[in-house]
């Protein structure tokens, strides 16, 4: 008889007594981290001459608009930095300054993305990459409005924008959020 009850009992006893574990280290979970990044389409605009003229066809030096956004507290503390990509096209014969702005719940300005974008006159597509660095990222959590200011530079030739001008100023943008998921 190859096997008998006594041998089986020994076998079971062996299993019970000698099942074992190799060492594991639970504490290393504290060091677990994961870097990933997510891309989101953001704001775009396509403005013509009338957008820069008031009701009396006078030039508007500064145009502003803003978007209310939901609370982003859930991203804390995993969001490490945010990278904005802005593409501009300008067929006006005037330069523009473009500011990307962050406002709190009271619509008070709390942050301006640097550097300020200068869009040269008669420029084809230009790409600008701006970043909220890790040191400033907390501003995101207080932001409730995200806005843009456009400043129209004075004409160097004295020409004024006419309502019939066939000029176009276009902005496209996206944001890439960089996360590091780890124990808070």
């Amino acid at each position: 008889m190859i096997l008998n009850p006594k041998k089986i009992s020994y076998f079971v006893l062996f299993l019970l007594c000698f099942s074992c574990t190799k060492p594991i280290d639970m504490d290393q979970l504290d060091d677990a981290s994961l870097d990933s990044s997510y891309l989101f389409t953001l704001i775009h605009l396509d403005l013509n001459a009338p957008n820069f003229l008031d009701d009396f066809n006078q030039e508007i030096a500064v145009s502003s608009d803003m978007v209310s956004i939901p609370k982003l507290d859930d991203l804390h503390p995993y969001l490490k930095r945010a990278e904005f990509t802005v593409k501009t096209e300008n067929s006006f014969n005037r330069n523009f300054t473009l500011n990307i702005l962050f406002y709190d719940k009271d619509q008070q300005l709390i942050y301006t993305l640097k550097p300020v974008i200068i869009v040269p006159s008669n420029s084809s597509e230009l790409m600008h990459v701006l970043e909220i660095p890790e040191n400033d990222i907390n501003v995101i959590y207080n932001t409730r409005y995200f806005g843009m200011d456009m400043s129209l530079w004075n004409s160097t030739t004295g020409d004024l924008i006419e309502v019939t001008d066939d000029f176009e100023f276009a902005v496209k943008s996206s944001i890439k959020l960089f996360f590091n998921f780890k124990k808070a």
């Binding site: 389409t41 605009l45 608009d65 978007v67 209310s68 456009m150």
Partner: peptide, 19 residues
């Protein structure tokens, strides 16, 4: 499908982009 928010820079229009 989402292209993002199209801003119109119209001071007479309230901000309703998100809603």
């Amino acid at each position: 499908q989402l292209d993002g928010f199209q801003l119109d820079f119209d001071p007479n229009t309230p901000d309703t982009y998100w809603s």
